[in-house]
Amino acid sequence: MSQDIATIRVTRYRPEKDGKPFFQDYKVPYRKDMVVLDALNYIKANLDGTLTYRWSCRMGVCGSCGANVDGVPKLTCASFLHEFKGRTIKVEPLTHFSVIKDLVVNMDDFMHKLVEIKPWIIKEKESPPEEGEYRQSAEELERYAQFSSCINCMLCYSACPVYGLNEKFLGPAAIALAYRYIEDSRDEGKDVRFPIVHELEGVWECTLVGECSVVCPKGVDPMLAIQKTKILGATNALKSLVMPRGGK
C-alpha cells in the first residue's frame, strides 16, 4: 500500500514553559484510510511523547477528540488525511474555549450549563418498574430522537460566534438537549425548563448563524431545536396572555 507524507501543523501550548501557543510541524507517513487522530497518535508514539490531546473510542461516538482541523471544528477521528493531500494540515484546539495544554480545552462551562437545563426526566412520581415501561409511540420518539444523539463533543460551541462573543449564551448543545427533554412525551418538566431556556442568555441570544448544525458530526440540528424552542416559548406566552388562568 502506497505511503504518502502529510505535514501536520499542531498548536502547542505548554503552560509551564510557554507564555502563548505556537505551531509545531510534524511529518507523518499515511495511508488512504488514516485519520487526523491516527496522525496525532503516530506523533505521540514515535516523534514526540509530549504532544497532548484527548481521545478514546476512535469511532465517532465518545466525543473526546474534537479539534479545529484546517479551521473547521471536526472530530479528528473522522477527518481523513488524504482529503488534505498536498497541504499542511492545521490542527488547533477548539475555538472559544480556554486551552489547558496543546489541544486540550477547558469544558467546565458546558458541564455547568448541562446541569442548568436539568437534563433528566422530570416527573411528579416515577412509577415502579413492576408496572412496566411508559408507552411511547414511534412518532413521539421521532419528535426528540435526533436531539438525543448529541455526543457533547463541543464542535457546535466552537462553531458558534454568538458563544464566542458572549460566553454566557447557553449554547447549541445545551439547548438541543433541553429541547430533547421538553419534547419527550414522558417528561413533565416543561414549566421548569422553559424559564431557563428563555432567559436573556438562552434561545433568544441565537441569531441564526446556523453553523452549529453544519459542523455537528452526528446529524443533530441544534439550530432547529433553538428555533423550535423560540416558537414554543412565543406560543406559550401568547396563550398565557389570552388565557391568563391555565391555558395550556
Partner: peptide, 22 residues
C-alpha cells in the same frame, strides 16, 4: 498554571464563508 484564552478578533466573520454570508 494559566490557561490560554483566545478572543474573537473584529474580523472573525471573514474567516469562514458561512459567517460572511451570515
Amino acid at each position: 498554571f494559566p490557561e490560554y484564552r483566545r478572543k474573537l478578533g473584529p474580523g472573525w466573520w471573514l474567516s469562514n464563508s458561512h459567517f460572511t454570508r451570515y
